[in-house]
């Protein structure tokens, strides 16, 4: 058992196109404070990249910058050889999709209506809603196993169902690259696994490039083809999880003393924090 599973050969459902997406000397910030500092990163097409880091390490900001939600203070994000700042925002949206951390479902909206709104970048003056849009929305619902919920109201759904519906909306946008900002926060552990399994399945079966920010290091190590560890607005380490998640890196990025052991399920690195009270017993402390 290896994790994540080895990408299968191109199958019938594998239809996402491969794009080159790179951050070059990218600096991002708000109100003059620099959060991401001259950072270079190439997103591997067709794979799952997971970005981890402590709070305020710049990981969400980096994701927003890659998705063209923030204007770079310096450097650029390059999509297929062109800086995304010079591309139209609708054009970028047909290639790169982003699921923000807390999107808002309008009161009373149904699942099919919400997912349908993902079609926005494909519509325009002369291109109104068509049966193709219906088919793509249905496909997005089927892929996220929410077709049976199509007529339900989003507010009636469980947290896990709701998150799958939001992922369906991002899929309806038909992006080849899907960015997700902490897609598992606010979910219990069962639904976390459910959502991550779904994203891995989308990646392996459709070829959609997945880039996500995760909080849980162990889940990150298990689901990532490539792990990016951030700290202080820079990349501390990047590569396959087994080589990347070391005690030194965890200490550097999180200021946390931890043991790294092999995940008993599939051998990916697993971080076991030590803490003040459970390490080598010191005199006068709890043993």
């Amino acid at each position: 058992m290896v994790c994540p599973p080895v990408p299968a050969a191109a199958g019938a459902r594998r239809h996402a196109q491969e794009h080159e997406l790179r951050a070059v000397g990218l600096s991002l910030g708000y109100d003059g404070a620099t959060i991401v500092d001259t950072l270079d990163l190439t997103i591997e097409p067709g794979r799952v990249t997971v970005i981890v880091g402590a709070n305020a390490s710049g990981k969400s900001t980096l994701l927003r910058g890659i998705a063209r939600l923030l204007r770079p203070e310096a450097g650029e994000v390059v999509l297929d050889g062109t800086s995304i700042s010079s591309l139209s925002s609708k054009k970028v949206a047909t290639v790169v999709g982003l699921l923000p951390q807390q999107p808002i479902a309008p009161d009373g909206i149904t699942v099919s209506d919400l997912v349908g709104r993902g079609r926005y970048p494909h519509q325009g003056w002369f291109r109104q809603w068509s049966s193709t849009d219906d088919a793509i929305v249905a496909d997005a619902l089927a892929a996220t196993d929410t077709l049976a919920l199509a007529e339900r109201r989003v507010e009636e759904l469980s947290g896990g169902q709701r998150q799958r519906v939001w992922i369906a909306m991002a899929l309806a946008q038909d992006p080849d690259i899907l960015l997700l900002d902490e897609p598992t926060s606010f979910l219990d552990v069962t639904h976390q696994i459910e959502v991550l399994d779904l994203l891995l399945e989308l990646n392996r079966e459709r070829g959609t490039t997945v880039v996500m920010v995760l909080h849980d290091l162990n889940l990150a190590a298990r689901y990532a083809d490539r792990l990016v560890v951030m700290g202080g607005g820079k990349i501390i380490a990047a590569g396959v999880p087994a080589d990347t998640l070391t005690t030194a890196v965890v200490s550097d990025a999180f200021g946390l003393e931890a043991l790294i052991v092999a995940d008993p399920v599939c051998g990916s690195p697993m971080v076991v924090p030590i803490g003040r009270f459970h390490g080598a017993p010191a005199p006068g402390t709890l043993g």
């Binding site: 927003r64 998705a67 063209r68 939600l69 139209s88 925002s89 609708k90 054009k91 970028v92 949206a93 047909t94 999709g97 982003l98 699921l99 923000p100 951390q101 807390q102 999107p103 808002i104 479902a105 309008p106 919400l114 709104r117 993902g118 926005y120 970048p121 991002a170 946008q173």
Partner: peptide, 15 residues
Amino acid sequence: RGLQMGDDAASALGI
């Protein structure tokens, strides 16, 4: 309709 879902979601749709 895009703005109803929040600024980030709207931007992500190319608005």
